[in-house]
Design a protein around this nucleic acid. Structure first.
Lengths: 350, 350
DNA sequence: TTTAGCACTCCCTTGCCTCGAGTGCTAAGC
DNA sequence: GCTTAGCACTCGAGGCAAGGGAGTGCTAAA
């Protein structure tokens, strides 16, 4: 059944006050915050109802109320006012965007840092690309008798390269032949298929051709593999340590572990959804049971999406974080839209 | 003045016991640990001396003694027995080396993770390269009318590449000419010099050549810059949270901040020194005043060194950490020595 | 120089008490 | 039937004293 308007207002007051002060909220405060139209006793009756219906919780009998995850959910869905950013906040984000991203090319990694600083909570960032990448073309560049450069371009337009050495010297004439072989037989297929084809060629080629060929293929397979698994970048992890709910070392430790060593299991966002808020137990991950996550996505062209998430206590300031995150995501999408000189995903220059 | 043999033995017992138990050590325990040759009262006299000389500290009047930084220093310099690794430990390290480093190419980043897990403390890792890198050669590969691949090889034999787009189409004939221009004028010089030369060419070239040229140069400058600043990788940061000395949130927070957000200011190792131990206040960094760092270096060919450090409480098990770290560093050096198919520093494939 | 003995210091834990915030309930009022 | 004043009750936080224990420093004797 639907809550009365007054109950909703009470829930809103409790939630916002608790987000602000991190302390249970009492009936007296609520009565006052609502303009004194009703007395604290009335509020107490309402609070008892809300508690019974599962929207509020009581740490102990003689304490005030705090929102339950169910309460937060209702707050986020219905009560929270979509905050507009102040001009100053928008300026801050713009400054962070133009300053940082121009300097360092690894947009995805930088995005995490920027968001963490504008949200005030730890943040993480992933580039959600195609799940299966194949090689579109190969180039081999001669360096000296014993070594050459392999350049691999994938079908999502990333380019990677590496210097390869071989035991036996190769003549200049052989390299174009090798490249031809690679481009005609080893493009558009998966890594295992590449392995099979290579096996099939063992007998036909001499060692002096086979060795550099297999090296190039091994390298290409490595590129394909590493493109498929999405690297997760996290930043600002220590910010959780200043949150009162993580003063307990055990809890902090669990979350820190997730944010530093098990980043891969941080929640991702379903395609098509621009933003999602996951509250406490809504997170499948055990370590996030007492935390909340706000995730948003942005477009970076060429069928790629960037994902950016903020992790905080369930008590986190959803309105502010959601507003900043969506502003940030939209700005990034725009940046990539008009300025597509920036390639979809660059090499991570360390 | 030199300490007597007995005082040294006492200091050794205190240090090792404290490393083990993280609790102040009393005279009774020491007497027992020394075989009962002397009584606890005698030990107490000696302890008073050692305390007065600054080798030991007393948390409060009625507590046992703990080593001071000066005490740790003497222990590390003279008393500590260089532990040989057990066969099992060596096996563990070998397994970690062969398993991990084959799979993922980013050796430096992986080294931090491996060391953290074998040492049981957080670890960090840097590739200390040449401070000023220049471009040795350029290659430009045509992709389509609007874009080409720029391949840049630096004088320390790293290869980086990127897809570049240009507004105006370029014909196939122009690309080799551009590459010639780059190779003849823009190799072996610094980024600012490159900028100047480029300015000098503004008038001589048409826009359809100037644009891609400046893009290629901008990219090369980015590669040079990012090679110069050494990226620091850290791993296992959360391990400090289980150390009793970092149960205090303030202290833990400070160190975590250093290990996640201010990694660049972690201590490095002077060239020529294979390993160094920095104890408590010997660290210049304020956040490491109550911590110790063990740093070692390994060779990765081509005038490059890798640096790998372990961060722990001053109470850390120096003998074990030093033994494992040096074994690890030596193994890595050997690996790079014999198997130089692995290039000095690869691109970080995410 | 070493040792036994002993008083002393200091921390840590436990139990007890008080204080204050906030509740739930009841009965009266609108 | 909803609202409100009043009041007893609950629970946690913080202060305080007592007791126990670990370990010391000092003294005097071997």
């Amino acid at each position: 059944m639907e809550l009365t308007a007054r109950k909703k207002q009470i829930l809103k007051v409790v939630t916002e006050r608790y987000i602000d002060a991190a302390e249970p909220v009492g009936s007296k405060f609520i009565a006052q915050a609502m303009g004194g139209a009703v007395s604290s006793a009335t509020i107490r009756n309402e609070l008892a109802d809300l508690t019974e219906q599962g929207y509020l919780e009581q740490p102990h009998t003689s304490a005030g109320r705090i929102p339950s995850p169910k309460g937060y959910r209702l707050y986020v869905n219905e009560l929270m006012e979509r905050k507009a950013l102040t001009v100053q906040e928008a300026e801050e984000i713009n400054a962070a965007l133009s300053g940082k991203l121009g300097q360092l090319d690894s947009v995805v990694a930088q995005a995490g840092q920027v968001v963490s600083s504008i949200a005030g909570y730890p943040a993480y960032s992933v580039a959600a690309g195609k799940s299966s990448v194949t090689v579109r073309r190969y180039d081999l560049l001669p360096v000296d008798a014993g070594s050459f450069i392999a350049v691999v371009m994938t079908d999502d337009s990333r380019v990677k390269s590496q210097l390869l050495h071989c035991q036996l010297p190769i003549t200049d004439g052989e390299l174009p032949a090798l490249a031809n072989l690679l481009n005609s037989h080893f493009t558009g297929i998966s890594a295992p298929e590449m392995g099979q084809k290579l096996m099939g060629l063992t007998s036909q080629l001499g060692a002096e051709l086979f060795m550099p060929l297999s090296q190039a293929i091994e390298y290409a397979a490595g590129v394909m593999e590493s493109s498929a698994q999405n690297q997760v970048y996290a930043a600002g992890q220590t910010r959780i340590l200043s949150q009162p709910e993580f003063q307990d070392l055990g809890r902090a430790n669990e979350l820190m572990g997730l944010l530093t060593d098990r980043k891969e299991s941080l929640p991702v966002l379903d395609e098509g959804t621009p933003m999602q808020i996951l509250i406490g137990p809504e997170n499948l991950n055990e370590a996030l049971r007492d935390a909340s996550v706000v995730v948003a996505s942005y477009d970076i062209g060429e069928n790629m999406r960037g994902l950016i998430g903020v992790v905080g206590p369930t008590r986190m300031d959803y309105a502010a974080v959601a507003a900043r995150l969506s502003y940030f995501a939209e700005s990034l999408t725009k940046m990539f839209g008009k300025n597509n000189q920036l390639p979809p995903k660059e090499e991570d220059v360390p």
